[in-house]
C-alpha cells in the first residue's frame, strides 16, 4: 500500500499533538484547549488518506461543537 504525504503529515500531527495536549507547557486549560486542535486536524488528514468523505463532514462539525462545550466548561470552572 502506497503511503501518501497526507498520511505521514497527519500521523506526525496526531502523535505530536497528543503528547503536547497530555503534557501542556504552561499548565492551564487554555493552552490545553488550543493544543487539542492539533490532533484534530491530524485526524482529519488521516481520514482524508482513507477517502472517508462522510467522516470528514461529521468530524469537522462535531469538533466545533465539542470546542464550544469545553469553552462553557472552562468558563463555569473559572467563574466558580
Amino acid at each position: 500500500m502506497i503511503v501518501t504525504p497526507e498520511f505521514v503529515a497527519g500521523m506526525i500531527l496526531l502523535i505530536g499533538g497528543t503528547v503536547v495536549t497530555a503534557f501542556p507547557r504552561p499548565k492551564n486549560y487554555v493552552t490545553q484547549l488550543i493544543n487539542l486542535e492539533i490532533p484534530g486536524w491530524g485526524l482529519l488528514l488521516v481520514m482524508l488518506h482513507y477517502n472517508e468523505s462522510l467522516a470528514l463532514f461529521t468530524f469537522a462539525a462535531v469538533s466545533v461543537l465539542s470546542t464550544y462545550i469545553f469553552v462553557r466548561i472552562i468558563q463555569k470552572k473559572e467563574g466558580a
Partner: peptide
C-alpha cells in the same frame, strides 16, 4: 490536501466552520 483529493464540498464546509472553533476559543482567552 483536501482540494487535491477532489472533495470540494468538504473543503467549502470545513473552511466555513473552522473559524467558529477559533472564535469560541477566543471567548476563554
Amino acid at each position: 490536501f483536501i482540494i487535491d483529493r477532489g472533495y470540494l464540498d468538504v473543503a467549502t464546509a470545513t473552511a466555513l466552520i473552522a473559524p467558529l472553533s477559533t472564535i469560541f476559543t477566543l471567548m476563554v482567552c
